[in-house]
């Protein structure tokens, strides 16, 4: 049993919890995830690690209510217990292998969609504390789904925020900001709404409960430029992009990164059961080979991921989830 020591509501549907889990607190690394279970009949829910405090022996998770299981987790209060917290699972981020001294010269662009800001946070923090240049884009459907803004600002060089409806930050989707940040200086205003059409599959985002439920509903683009953009003529201003959020966002972030010739890492929020490589529910095609997101990932080279298959596989239990949500009287309309 794992005691909840702190709880904050970040938005109407998103909660932050600090949980006592000393073993995980001392072994967790950026890029890894946990499996959380509530109650004897509880599902094993994969969630990203948002932060950890080795001294206190606690880990922080950020959960969005997306179904029955996440709702159960979010309804627990300080002093209550999670039945199980297992982890850290998956491989740490690739940059953990880079000697710390070399990180000073690196330039990273993070793209966080909705609750994806939570797993981006420890990565940005790790890199920023080691002297890397870290820019972070947080995008969501509207201002109520933008989380961790102040905390993120402390662990990055520049923070950019966008919302589909313009209720906070720029109006537009994350790819627009990606493109503008990478555009040669002086040409930012030339950005056109070329991607609005590509973002056709509205409603593809499903209620799949899983690692990083988030929010992303692409809408029209917007050309308004604000702030400084770091691009230099003819040079992509980043060594690496990391995109974490809903699968559909990562798909389009990857398409944009390809266009910008920017290497990109994505963190896949597939279905999982055990999270230890035992079941294969999380399998994804990466460069034509079947990989298990739980043990071979969760982070992969975005260029190699078959996103359409991954999106389709996320819908496997959609019918069962909808029935369960209805039976529990859960209203997820915002």
């Amino acid at each position: 049993m794992y005691r909840i020591v702190d709880k904050k509501q970040l938005t109407p549907l998103i909660y932050s919890l600090w949980v006592e889990a000393p073993r995980i607190a001392s072994s967790a690394k950026p890029g890894q995830f946990l499996i959380v279970r509530t109650g004897e009949n509880g599902e094993r829910v994969p969630l990203t690690i948002c932060d950890y405090d080795t001294r206190k022996g606690t880990v922080r998770i950020v959960v969005q209510i997306a179904g029955v299981s996440s709702s159960k987790i979010c309804h627990l209060n300080v002093g209550n217990y999670l039945t199980d917290v297992a982890g850290p699972l998956g491989k740490p981020s690739d940059f953990m292998e880079i000697p710390e001294d070399d990180l000073k010269d690196k330039r990273y662009l993070f793209v966080a969609g909705g609750v994806g800001a939570a797993p981006v946070y420890p990565q940005a923090k790790y890199l920023y504390e080691r002297g890397a240049h870290v820019d972070v884009i947080i995008g969501a459907r509207n201002k109520d789904l933008i989380i961790m803004e102040d905390e993120m600002r402390k662990v990055c060089t520049n923070l950019y925020i966008c919302t589909d409806d313009g209720s906070k930050g720029e109006k537009g989707v994350v790819t627009l900001l990606m493109e503008r940040l990478c555009a040669p200086s002086g040409t930012q205003n030339g950005t056109e709404g070329a991607f609005s059409g590509d973002f056709a599959p509205s409603g593809t985002q499903n209620g799949t409960e899983g690692a990083f439920p988030g929010d992303f509903a692409p809408s029209g683009t917007q050309n308004g430029t604000e702030g400084a953009f770091p691009g230099e003529a003819g040079v992509v201003p980043y060594d690496m992009c990391v995109a974490i959020g809903p699968m559909i966002m990562m798909k389009f972030a990857t398409l944009m990164a390809k266009k910008l010739e920017l290497p990109i890492t994505v963190s896949l929020n597939t279905l999982m059961v055990d999270g230890t490589g035992m079941c294969g529910a999380c399998r994804v095609s990466v460069a034509g080979k079947t990989m298990f997101a739980c043990v071979d990932g969760p982070e992969f080279n975005g260029y190699d991921v078959d996103f359409d298959e991954a999106l389709r596989r996320q819908t496997l239990y959609r019918k069962e989830e909808q029935e369960a949500n209805a039976a529990a009287g859960l209203d997820l309309r915002r």
Binding site: M278, G280, R283, V284, T290, F292, R312, R313
Partner: peptide, 21 residues
Amino acid sequence: GLPMFLGIPGENLNGVFSANE
């Protein structure tokens, strides 16, 4: 504990499971 798959086309379609899962 790691399940083996067939290595044939269509193995990642929705509805293909390892017995372990």
